[in-house]
Write a protein that binds this DNA or RNA. Structure first.
Length: 117
DNA sequence: CACATGACTGATT
DNA sequence: GAATCAGCCATGT
């Protein structure tokens, strides 16, 4: 998890997956936070695209990634529309109206936690 | 190649 | 604080 100056998309995607795998159970983060931690603050959309290709939620907990407001904007890309919320709730994360409650408190900052540069 | 679209975000109105 | 705009960039047509 070093040498992040790389601009190759395949590497970027790989790093996204590694960061997501580091998200603790019961915690959440945002697309922008991940992109920022990877040195591409403006590439939040690409984080979403990377997660869009994820099918193995057990290996890569994509449900723990929401937008900056804590809204489950990616729910429609799961197998079922309710899967994302169900997965979060099964981990103790409260969700109401497609929004993570106590988002500020549950937010996990990859930049701070992984000390990436 | 041009143009539209989107698991985004920050600034402006 | 909601609506709108503008950057962002991989993908699809």
């Amino acid at each position: 998890m070093s040498n992040l100056k790389n601009t190759d998309k395949a590497v970027f995607f790989q790093l996204v997956y590694e960061v997501v795998q580091c998200i603790p159970r019961g915690r959440v983060t945002s697309y922008g936070a991940i992109a920022d931690a990877l040195g591409r603050k403006k590439a939040a959309r690409m984080v979403g695209w990377a997660l869009n290709k994820v099918k193995d939620y057990k290996n890569i907990p994509a449900h723990r990634v929401v937008n900056r407001k804590g809204v489950l904007t990616g729910k429609i890309h799961f197998q079922t529309i309710k899967m994302m919320q169900n997965l979060l709730e099964s981990e103790g994360v409260e969700v109401k109206d497609d929004k993570v409650l106590y988002f500020d408190k549950l937010f996990w900052d990859p930049k701070e936690s992984l000390k990436i540069d």
